[in-house]
Design a protein around this nucleic acid. Structure first.
Length: 554
RNA sequence: GCGUCCGUAGCUCAAUUGGACAGAGCAUCAGACUUCGAAUCUGAGGGUUCAGGGUUCGAGUCCCUGCGGGCGCACCA
C-alpha cells in the first residue's frame, strides 16, 4: 500500500476508535472499508465510504457520521484537508508540500520506483504459454505470453519472488503424432512414399522441416528401423520447434527462468510419487482397465482418467505430477497457471487433485484468458495447427512491432474475448496509443538532453517551486504507480498498466503544454528539470513493466 | 441440454471489485505550430451500460429470467 493511503487508513482507524471511545459513535463492529481514488478530482485524492457503510449498523445519518469523523481527524504532513461530502463520503486531499517531496524520492527509486512489499517475498511460480513443441506459435498463444510475462513483472515489482516457467510437453500422444508426421514428410522429401498419419500435422512448416532434414541428414533416419527413425528424427524436430518457439517469444519480449520437461517427471520420479500419493489418499479407482482420479468423491460431476487401459498416462496425470513437483518438490508458496479459455473446464479437477494431494487448493491460482478471434476485415480466420491454417505470432510482430502487439493485448482484460483484426492492427499501428506514450518518453529525454547540452545541472533544484496545477497533477499521477502495481498484482490484472500509462503520458503532456521547462528563470528551470527526470523514471518503469521499449528518439 | 466467460459511444475497449456526473483511444466535425519534439494540443457531437424483474442509502458491477455471442462438457492435449 502506498504511503499516503496507509497514513489515511491509520488516521481514519484512529478517528473511529476515538469516536467510539468518546461515545460519539456507538460501540458497533466496524465494517471493512477501503481507501479509494475517486474518479472525479474534485473529490480529492482519496475517498472513503465508511460512513455510508456504518450508517445502518450505527443507526445514524451517514453524512453526520462523516462530519463527526472529520472533526476527529487532525491534518498531518501528508493530508491538507479532510471533508465530508453527501451522502456520506470522506474526501482527503494531499498537501502540495508533501507531493513536491515525492519528486526526489521518485528519482532515488530509479528503476525500482513503483515497487511495493506486498508480496512479502512469497515464492510464486508462474507458468504460461506452454504450447506443445509441435508447431509455431499463433497469435492467440501470444496473448497468454504477454499477459503472463507482464503479470510476472508486476508480481516481482510487488515484492513476490517470481519464477517464470514454460512446461514443455515432450511426451505423450501429440508428440508421437508429431514424430510420425515429420518422418513422413522427411521420407517424402527423399522421394519415397510414406503416408501421413491420420490426424497428423498437416501444416506447410512440416513439409519445410522434412525437406530441411532430408537435405541435412540424407537417408540416415530412413535406413534404420522405422520406430527408431521416427523417434530420433522427432527428437531433433522437437528441439528445432522449441528453438523456434523461444525465438518467437523472445521477439515478443517474453522470457523464462526455466523450461521444464514433461519427460523429467517420469525420469525423476515425480510422476510415480504423485500417483502413489493420490492412491494412498484413496482417490484412485480402477474401472474398465483404466485408473481414474475419483474426483466425484470431491463433488466433481465425473471422474478423470489418469492411466489409460493401455498403461499410458494421460496428460492430466502428468499435469498432476507437475503440480506435485511445483508444490511439494520445489516448495512454491503459490502457483499461477495461465490458460486459454479452452481449458476452463479443467480448473475444478486440477484444484481437486491439488486438494487430494494434501495441498491447499487456494495456493493454486488459474488465470483464464479468452481466446483471440482472428479476422482479416470481415472474414474470420479459423485457426488449426493440424491443418496448418495459422497466423503466427511472428507474422504479427513483423507487421506491427513488438511494442504495439504487447500493448494491444495488454489493454484488454483477460476475460474479454477480443478480436484481432489484422487489417486494423496494421492500420492502427501508426495511430496507436503506444506511440503517444513512447513519444512522451522520447520528449522527456529530449528535454533533458537539451538541458545537458546547455550545461544545466539541476540536481539541487528546489521542488517547492513546483506549484502549478499541472505540475502537481503530474506528481499525483506518478505516485499512483505503486497503487497500480499492487492492485494489478493482487487482482492478477495486468491490463491496468496500459490505462495507467496513458494517463501518465497524458499528464506529462499537459504539464509540457502548460509549463515551459527551460526558461530564463534558472531556479524554476532546475525544479522543473527535476520533475521531468522523475517523469522519465515513472514512464520508463511503466513501459518496462509492460515489456515495452523506452525509446529516446522516435 | 449442462457448465463457464462475455454483452458498455459508430468501432476497439476501461470503469479503483457495490460508490459521487459511466470514461479513454480510433473515427467524425471545428480550431491551434517562428518555442524544450505538432507522432502534439484545445473544443464539439456521440449512451435506455442487451432486455425485464429483484436486492439497498446507492447497481454497468450482486441475484433471478430471457435474448445474443465465445469456450468447454474424450481412455486428446
Amino acid at each position: 500500500m502506498s504511503l499516503a493511503k496507509e497514513k489515511i487508513s491509520n488516521m481514519l482507524a484512529a478517528a473511529v476508535e476515538k469516536a467510539q471511545r468518546d461515545g460519539i459513535l456507538p460501540q458497533v463492529p466496524i465494517p471493512e472499508y477501503l481507501i479509494e481514488k475517486p474518479q472525479n478530482p474534485l473529490h480529492g485524492d482519496y475517498a472513503c465510504t465508511l460512513p455510508l457503510k456504518l450508517a445502518r449498523i450505527a443507526k445514524m445519518n451517514p453524512l453526520q457520521i462523516a462530519q463527526k469523523l472529520v472533526d476527529m481527524i487532525t491534518p498531518t504532513d501528508e493530508i491538507e484537508s479532510v471533508t465530508a461530502a453527501a451522502p456520506g463520503f470522506l474526501n482527503f486531499t494531499l498537501r502540495a508540500e508533501w507531493l513536491q517531496k515525492r519528486v526526489p524520492l521518485i528519482i532515488k527509486g530509479g528503476s525500482h520506483f513503483g515497487d511495493t512489499d506486498t508480496g512479502k517475498a512469497q515464492k510464486v511460480q508462474i507458468e504460461f504459454v506452454s504450447v506443445n513443441p509441435t508447431g509455431p506459435m499463433h497469435v492467440g498463444h501470444g496473448r497468454g505470453g504477454i499477459i503472463g510475462s507482464t503479470l510476472a513483472n508486476v508480481l516481482s515489482a510487488a515484492g513476490f519472488h517470481v519464477k517464470k516457467e514454460y512446461y514443455v510437453n515432450d511426451a505423450g500422444n501429440q508428440i508421437d503424432l508429431f514424430n510420425k508426421s515429420l518422418y513422413a514428410r522427411y521420407k517424402q522429401a527423399l522421394g519415397l512414399d510414406e503416408p501421413m498419419p491420420a490426424d497428423g500435422y498437416m501444416g506447410e512448416y512440416m513439409k519445410d522441416l522434412g525437406k530441411k532434414f532430408a537435405d541435412e541428414f540424407g537417408d540416415k533416419f530412413e535406413k534404420i528401423q522405422l520406430a527408431d527413425g521416427q523417434k530420433q528424427l522427432g527428437a531433433i524436430g522437437q528441439e528445432r520447434m522449441i528453438t523456434w518457439i523461444k525465438e518467437d517469444l523472445a521477439q515478443a519480449n517474453v522470457s523464462y527462468d526455466n523450461w521444464f520437461s514433461e519427460n523429467d517427471l517420469y525420469k525423476k520420479g515425480s510422476y510415480r510419487k504423485a500417483i502413489t500419493l493420490l492412491k494412498e489418499q484413496g482417490y484412485v479407482t480402477e474401472k474398465e482397465g483404466a485408473q481414474w482420479f475419483a474426483s466425484t468423491i470431491l463433488g466433481e460431476d465425473k471422474d478423470n482418467v489418469l492411466v489409460r487401459s493401455t498403461g499410458a498416462p494421460t496428460y492430466f496425470a502428468s499435469d498432476v505430477a507437475y503440480h506435485y513437483n511445483k508444490f511439494v518438490e520445489r516448495g512454491f508458496d503459490r502457483v499461477i497457471d495461465i490458460w486459454g479459455a479452452d481449458h476452463r473446464g479443467h480448473i475444478n479437477r486440477k484444484k481437486m487433485a491439488t486438494y487430494a494431494m494434501g495441498i491447499d487448493p487456494n495456493r493454486l491460482q488459474i488465470l483464464i484468458y479468452q481466446l483471440v478471434t482472428l479476422k482479416r476485415g470481415d472474414e474470420v480466420i479459423r485457426i488449426s495447427k493440424r491443418t496448418g491454417n495459422i497466423i503466427t505470432l511472428r507474422e504479427i510482430i513483423d507487421e506491427v512491432g513488438p511494442d504495439a502487439v504487447r500493448f494491444f493485448f495488454l489493454q484488454r482484460s483477460a476475460d474479454s474475448q477480443m478480436e484481432f483484426d489484422l487489417e486494423l492492427a496494421k492500420k492502427q499501428s501508426s495511430e496507436n496509443p503506444v506511440f503517444y506514450i513512447q513519444y512522451a518518453h522520447a520528449r522527456i529525454v529530449s528535454i533533458l538532453r537539451s538541458a545537458a547540452e546547455r550545461g544545466i545541472t539541476w540536481e539541487n533544484g528546489d521542488v517547492s517551486k513546483l506549484t502549478d496545477k499541472a505540475e502537481l497533477a503530474f506528481i499525483r499521477k506518478m505516485i499512483q504507480l505503486e497503487e497500480v502495481v499492487e492492485n494489478a498484482a493482487l487482482a492478477m490484472e495486468p491490463h491496468h498498466l496500459p490505462h495507467y500509462a496513458m494517463g501518465l503520458a497524458n499528464s506529462f503532456t499537459q504539464f509540457y503544454e502548460h509549463c515551459r521547462v527551460l526558461t530564463p528563470d534558472s531556479e524554476l528551470t532546475y525544479a522543473r528539470l527535476k520533475l521531468v527526470e522523475a517523469g522519465r523514471i515513472a514512464l520508463s518503469r511503466t513501459l518496462t513493466l509492460m515489456g515495452m521499449s523506452t525509446p529516446e528518439k522516435m
